[in-house]
């Protein structure tokens, strides 16, 4: 029980710190973000970030749809990310 309390307090404080630091950080709206930025911020959330050169254009299309589904990301985010990956590979 004590451990549970410690863990919850720890995660709550980390959440609070992160929310506060996030609010003071630049308030960009997703719509204004570039594909590169969205890639750097989102494709690292579950696994290491893949480099654009890891796949060809067709493969990025398929992976984009697969990750849109698996990671439940928005249409706009995935569209911009795939465009960036195809341009940078």
């Amino acid at each position: 029980m004590k451990k549970l309390v410690i863990i919850s307090t720890l995660s709550l404080s980390i959440t609070a710190i992160a929310i506060l630091s996030g609010c003071t950080a630049q308030r960009e709206v997703a719509a204004q973000k570039s594909g590169a930025e969205l890639w750097a911020q989102n494709c690292i959330r579950c696994h290491n970030i893949p480099s654009p050169t890891a796949y060809n254009n067709d493969e990025w299309e398929t992976i984009g749809l697969h990750m849109r589904e698996r990671a439940n990301m928005t249409n706009e985010q995935i569209g911009k990310i795939v465009e960036f990956l195809q341009a940078a590979n």
Partner: peptide
């Protein structure tokens, strides 16, 4: 994902 940089998810 409450943060603009998508770093956190609840």
């Amino acid at each position: 994902l409450p943060l603009y940089n998508s770093s956190m998810e609840l």
